[in-house]
Design a protein around this nucleic acid. Structure first.
Lengths: 351, 351
DNA sequence: GTGAAAGCGCTAACAA
DNA sequence: TTGTTAGCGCTTTCAC
């Protein structure tokens, strides 16, 4: 195996520009105390020689790694990948995260971590020690895992917590789930629906409760009862089926269902079809997330759009800002959800 | 900002075990010349102290970076992400690549590179210098970009070329496109079709010609004419529309179409519908790639399945093997495509 | 504002 | 088989 040495190092640049290593280092890192003239001369040498600093060496000498680690739940992520149902959560994170990282000379790396596992800490510690990332992005359900959050806090690594709002550590970001749930429900109420049912997500995800709260709030504001209009799911298609059957099996069935994610909404579509209900004539359905698949169902689903790319992009910005010593905003950052109206919603049936 | 030092270094382990740094290093790297007893003692200290080597330091001292870089075409990848049409190319690469990397203590990192750009070389050189990856995975159309291939060869970095077969550099891997094209065509012929048309991909992708060759071969073997049965596309939906209109506009129209990717096949579905043709009764359609979306079209598309995860996984294995000094296999590696029969194929209309 | 020296954590090369 | 020494490329002190 060939022992590979850096072709052009800071030394070559220093020699070429006739300055000390230190000055070159200062120019690379855009430090203040360098005369413009000096900086130009060094920059010229850098460009001429095509010098690019070694991240490993920078990291070694106690500076940054220019690396941000994005953590996702191993089990769920792999299951999504294998299922090949078009969930593009990871892609949207990459889209928002990688591009924003690139703007700052950073890079993003993905890492899968088991939540349901007593060695989360060991797993994550190892990754941090090996990689020494400058920041970490947590996604649900990790964002609210106290083991993970405390570990990161202890290590003093800036970290974002997507889909999380509480605690005084890290940088929480949400899509305003409660408001989104409220708006979606209100949209159905505005169409004339009075019996708007809700299928919740698992309690493990804190955003499940927010979405429910939004629905509940809109219903309450409109003076509508919610008795018997809630069913519990766990984000899986199958749980959505069970919930939908429970909801639509009653004589006094709801005229609209707001499901906490796409899979469960698709299950509603299937159950409705089996029961001879036409969507949206007999039943309106709205989902959360808006993964690519919901534009292709029959009918296409009206959905709350989760702005993953934008949220990840903000997370990267805030992590780098924190790394640069800027204060982290006080409250949680809200990157508002969107709402895409498609064919699964209409006025309720008359009578 | 806190200056972060490694909590547990090789020194601590050495002290704890009462051995030299070098011995610890040998244990970490599973080198042979260490007495079992010694190795156990050191390993015990490692476990006790929770030591994990710093990748940066390992890289700095001339060893590996334990990093494999996966290169994708910037323009196309970002377009796919933004389009949100459920293309899971990146996800499948991650699935196959990350998991295999993890087995060997490696990590995979994604990087986007412009092909149509005179500074590909500068761009890629910078990434290589900054990151010092132990290997690189090239995807189409990069796999056949001479600038990229030569650069990697010159740097002496093991690299895989997915979707490529030629040249004596790097590790070429294909899904056996020609065979897949042949099989798909044969499948249609077996159903009774005689006029099987083909929509090609852009010439920029070498696999376009392989897929075409497979179709041509099957048609030839069956003694069927191909005049007027080929149309050129560029993988875009719109180009697929144009090709389909050209093909289906004739009086003597084909009874089946094999499209070189999913988007163009979907365009065929749309054009057929506009012309009042029922798929699969009046027209059979088969696509290449089998992205998640094609299971949801109306009717669902019969498709050649591109084994991206498996191919990426093999690529990682071979790169690491090469890094370990093993000889690279001679011919191109073939990870055979699959074939998924769905509702878009049937016997041709009687007539 | 600029430079010189020390050291980050690890491994290659050499010595014992 | 094990230990010692000398860096890798860079940034952090700390002088000047």
């Amino acid at each position: 195996m060939v022992r590979r040495r850096q072709a052009v190092t800071i030394k070559h640049v220093a020699a070429d520009a006739g300055v000390s290593l230190q000055t070159v280092s200062r120019v690379i890192n855009k430090e203040p105390n360098v005369r413009p003239q000096m900086q130009e001369r060094v920059q010229a040498s850098i460009d001429k020689l095509g010098y690019v600093p070694s991240r490993a060496a920078q990291r070694m000498s106690g500076s940054r790694s220019y690396l941000i680690l994005a953590l996702n739940d191993r089990e769920r992520t792999i299951a999504d990948w294998r299922a090949r149902q078009g969930s593009d959560w990871v892609d949207q994170m990459l889209l928002g995260g990688m591009l924003k990282c690139a703007e700052y000379g950073y890079r993003m790396m993905f890492e899968l971590v088991d939540t349901h596992n007593d060695h989360v800490e060991r797993e994550l510690s190892a990754a941090i020690t090996a990689l020494q990332p400058d920041g970490v992005i947590l996604t649900p359900p990790h964002s609210d895992n106290p083991l993970i959050v405390n570990l990161l806090d202890k290590h003093n690594i800036p970290f974002a917590r997507i889909g999380s709002a509480g605690w005084a550590v890290g940088i929480p970001l949400t899509m305003g789930d409660e408001q989104a749930g409220k708006d979606a429900t209100q949209h159905l109420i505005d169409l004339g629906h009075e019996k708007v049912a809700f299928i919740s997500g698992p309690d493990e995800y804190i955003l499940s409760s927010w979405r429910r709260a939004g629905w509940q709030c809109a219903m309450g504001n409109a003076g509508l009862a919610i008795d018997g209009l809630i069913a519990n799911g766990d984000f899986s298609f199958e749980s959505g089926r069970i919930a939908a059957e429970q909801l639509l099996g009653k004589t006094d069935r709801p005229t609209a269902i707001l499901a906490s994610n796409d899979q469960m909404a698709m299950a509603c579509l299937e159950v409705a079809r089996e029961k001879g209900l036409v969507v949206p004539d007999d039943l309106s359905v709205v989902s959360f997330d808006n993964t690519p698949i919901v534009a292709l169902t029959d009918p296409p689903l009206t959905a709350v759009d989760q702005p993953i790319a934008e949220t990840t992009s903000r997370a990267v910005e805030l992590i780098i800002a924190a790394k640069n010593g800027n204060r982290t905003p006080d409250g949680p950052i809200i990157v508002p959800a969107g709402f895409v109206e498609r064919g699964s919603t209409a006025a309720p049936p008359r009578g």
